[in-house]
Nucleic acid binder design. Structure first.
Lengths: 220, 220
DNA sequence: AAGTCAATAAATATCGATATTTTTCTAGCG
DNA sequence: CGCTAGAAAAATATCGATATTTATTGACTT
């Protein structure tokens, strides 16, 4: 479902609030992979009714963050190195596709939004807000693909990837890569409308992160 | 979510019943694309409570058959030629990928299940049961990809395609293609483990159908 | 007339209470 | 002792009623 992009804050429905909270808790690992998600328990935790919780969980099913088994409730989607490998592979294929379509029909607005997203990302240092900006930058790359479903898949997979990043980051979070430079490179290639180069840079960015994360995921 | 594969019949939960019925109604066009789906109305139609209906609709969101707008209910996913084109394109990419992975690690069981699925499909003539067998055959091709998410995507897209097939079939359903022969060809190539040939045959099968359907979809 | 605002109607969202189903526990049996 | 049947506990699923929100209508201004 992915509501993240709505005008933030505001008074939203209880379901939406529950959806956002639960989504966040699963992505950050506050609700561990595979964990049974009991309605009553979550209801108290989020201080809301059972209906919103239940509906939020149903919705999270779309994002592959929650599994539902008829008549026996919900659980946080399990995590495994195989699953992570699958996500990485799919992301590479789908983002490559979306990226190329985006560049193929590039427009000034697309380019400007991309530059803007990159700029905003550079400004932000606080972990939480950087995460959001980082996603926005990556989605801005794909935003011109004229393929809403494809973008939705990419967005879903992006989130699933973040989840693994969080699951892995229990160990020391040291990486000797220069992420900032990688982003600059991606942006530069995109602005110059070089699909091959952008794709190479982007996939390399993902694969390097993927390899690193895989090495940290021994405990799965 | 896609529960279709569960052991059929049986006493299921009300939610599951509603899910199946609504899914069917959307796929067949009984609930037209874009239509507002009012809880009360469906509740009476399915003779069940509001909660199961609501939950079923939330679940159908995963399958991209229903859209949900916070605080103003649900509607059947809209249909358009653009959307259909998108589905076709994604199917070709994803099924190609799944198929190749399937063949790359082919096993006797996979092959046997495939042959079986094909045989069953040939037996069946009744429209409804043929549809099911047809899907099972196509999914059997991909069943060995070792990539559950990929298979899920393919399954979803397959269903969305069926929906367009039904939307299009208002016109006379005449096609001068020999579908049976196309299936034989796909099966033969797969059994001989020729990934390139199978992929070519499969994608051609899809693209031919796609072109035909597109021509019928003028009224969208 | 076009536009606005309030009142009404309709629909959605949510709650609290039960009915059902699954899981856990335990005592009796082989 | 391990196993199974059945009771008790826990959790899920569902209902019916109500609170909120959105959509509609129509009178009133300019």
């Amino acid at each position: 479902m992915n509501i993240m992009d709505e005008t933030s804050g505001k008074e939203a429905s209880a379901t939406r609030g529950a959806y956002m909270s639960l989504r966040d808790m699963i992505l950050t690992g506050a609700l561990p992979a595979g964990e049974k998600l009991k309605i009553e328990q979550l209801r108290k935790l989020l201080d809301t009714g059972a209906s919103p919780v239940r509906e939020a969980l149903s919705l999270l099913t779309s994002d592959m963050l929650v599994e539902r088994i008829d008549q026996r409730g919900f659980r946080a989607a399990p995590a495994s190195t195989e699953n992570f490998a699958e996500i990485l592979k799919l992301r590479c294929v789908l983002e490559d596709m979306a990226l190329r379509q985006s560049i193929a029909s590039a427009t000034p607005e697309w380019e400007e939004n991309l530059v803007l997203a990159h700029h905003r990302m550079k400004q932000l240092t606080g972990a939480a807000s950087f995460e959001d900006a980082h996603k926005l930058f990556h989605m801005a790359l794909l935003a011109n693909s004229s393929s809403p479903m494809l973008e939705r898949f990419c967005s879903q997979l992006y989130d699933l990837n973040i989840r693994y990043r969080n699951l892995a980051s229990s160990g020391r979070n040291y990486q000797k890569r220069d992420i900032t430079a990688e982003h600059e490179e991606i942006l530069a290639c995109a602005v110059r409308r070089d699909a091959d180069a952008t794709s190479t840079a982007l996939l390399s960015h993902y694969r390097l992160t993927g390899a690193y994360l895989t090495s940290q995921l021994v405990n799965l």
